[in-house]
C-alpha cells in the first residue's frame, strides 16, 4: 500500500494505483473525457491534470501512479483555468447542437460545458466539417462531434481485438476512422458506441426515439447465445428504443451486434398476435378460448385412444426456466409422459 495526500486528505491505495483512481477512492472527482477503467490510460484529454508537490508541471492523474508521500492537488485556480481552456477549445470545434443531439443528457462534454459555464467562446474559429458517408445500418458516426478521446480506438483494439478504427491525418485535421474510411473490419459490436463520451457515435436505430426523458430502463438478459449478457432495455411508450448494458455484470458492459442492435424483432409486424387454428387446410385467426378448448379436447382424445406416450412435447432453450419447468411438468403430470425434450443438441 502507498500513502499519499490528495487535496489534504490522506489516501491509502495499493501500489500501482493511478492518482486518478486514488482520488476517486476518496470521493474526489476529477474530470476526464478519455479515461475508461477497462482501457489502457491514454492521457489525451488532459482534463485530469493535477499538481504534485515538487513536480514543476501538472501531470495527468490517469497515467501517473500514486507514490508514497505524494502531495497531490486536484483543484487550484491554475488547474481550473487550464481545464476551462481545454473545454473551451473543444467547444470551439464542436457543433454544439445539444438541442437535437441523441446523446444530450448523457454527454460528458455537455456536462463539462455546464460545470464550467461556457457560453461565449474566446477561441471561436474554424470547425471541422465532415459529410457522413458510412452506410452501415448500426453505427451513426457524426465525426464533427468527435473529440478524439481515442476510447473507440482502444476498445476496438484492446477489448474487441479488431482494430477497425484508428487515428488518421494530423493536426487539426486529425480524425478517427477505419482504414480508407470504409467499414472494412468492423464487427458492429457497438463497443465504441458504448464508450463514446459525446454524440459522435450513436446507434442509427436510436434516432429520434427518445433520449433521457420518459425512459424506463429495464435490466434483463440477452435472448441470443449462451453467454448470458445483461441487457438494459430503454423503454418509451411500451417500445424498446435502445439497448445498453451495465458495466458491473458478467459481460462487463460489452455486447455483440445481436445484443446491441438485435432488438428489432420485438416490435416486428410479423409477431403473432392472435391464436390461429387450421380450418379447411388454412390457418385462421381464432380466440384463445376456442384454441385452448381445441387443444385440450383433442389432446385428451389422443391420450385416451393411444395412451399418453403418443403425445410429445418440445420445450425451448429460448424460454425461461419457469416456463420450461411448467412445460415439462405439464407433459409429465398432466399428459403423463416423459416424451419431453428440447433442442440442446442443435
Amino acid at each position: 500500500m502507498v500513502n499519499l495526500t490528495i487535496d489534504g486528505i490522506t489516501v491509502s491505495v495499493p501500489e500501482g494505483t493511478t492518482i486518478l483512481d486514488a482520488a476517486r477512492s476518496a470521493d474526489i472527482s476529477v474530470p476526464t473525457l478519455c479515461h475508461h477503467p477497462k482501457l489502457t490510460p491514454f492521457g489525451g484529454c488532459r482534463l485530469c491534470i493535477v499538481n504534485i508537490k515538487g513536480v514543476p508541471r501538472p501531470v495527468t492523474s490517469c497515467t501517473t501512479p500514486a507514490e508514497d508521500g505524494m502531495e497531490v492537488t486536484t483543484r487550484s485556480s491554475t488547474l481550473e483555468r487550464l481545464r476551462r481552456t481545454l473545454v473551451e477549445l473543444l467547444l470551439s470545434d464542436h457543433p454544439n447542437d445539444c438541442m437535437v443531439c441523441e446523446q444530450a443528457g448523457n454527454c460528458t462534454l455537455q456536462e463539462l460545458a455546464y460545470f464550467y459555464g461556457i457560453r461565449e467562446n474566446r477561441f471561436a474559429g474554424e470547425r471541422r466539417v465532415y459529410t457522413k458517408t458510412d452506410n452501415n445500418p448500426f453505427l451513426e458516426r457524426d465525426m464533427e462531434k468527435c473529440i478524439l478521446c481515442g476510447k473507440c480506438v482502444r476498445v476496438c483494439d484492446e477489448i474487441q481485438g479488431v482494430g477497425a478504427v484508428d487515428f488518421t491525418y494530423r493536426g487539426f485535421s486529425a480524425k478517427i476512422c477505419p482504414p480508407f474510411e470504409k467499414d472494412l473490419e468492423c464487427e458492429f459490436c457497438g463497443q465504441c458506441v458504448t464508450v463514446c463520451p459525446t454524440g459522435a457515435l450513436t446507434g442509427k436505430m436510436w434516432r429520434q426515439k427518445g433520449r433521457q426523458q420518459g425512459i424506463r430502463k429495464v435490466h434483463t438478459v440477452c435472448p441470443y447465445c449462451g453467454c448470458g449478457c445483461n441487457l438494459t432495455l430503454h423503454v418509451r411508450d411500451n417500445e424498446v428504443i435502445r439497448v445498453s448494458s451495465r458495466e458491473d455484470t458478467i459481460n462487463e458492459g460489452w455486447l455483440c451486434p445481436k445484443g446491441s442492435f438485435g432488438y428489432g424483432f420485438i416490435a416486428n409486424s410479423d409477431r403473432l398476435t392472435k391464436p390461429l387454428i387450421r380450418e379447411k387446410g388454412k390457418l385462421r385467426e381464432t380466440t384463445w378460448e376456442k384454441a385452448l378448448e381445441y387443444i385440450a379436447s383433442n389432446s385428451l382424445k389422443i391420450k385416451e385412444n393411444y395412451g399418453p406416450d403418443a403425445i410429445g412435447g418440445l420445450a425451448s432453450a429460448r424460454c425461461s426456466n419457469e416456463e420450461n419447468y411448467v412445460f415439462q411438468k405439464f407433459m409429465r403430470a398432466v399428459i403423463g409422459t416423459n416424451n419431453v425434450d428440447h433442442c440442446a443438441r442443435l
Binding site: C45, R46, L86, S92, I147, L148, G171, A174, K175
Partner: peptide
Amino acid sequence: CGKCIPCRI
C-alpha cells in the same frame, strides 16, 4: 498528432 486537445485545437 492530434492526441491531446491543447496541441490539436
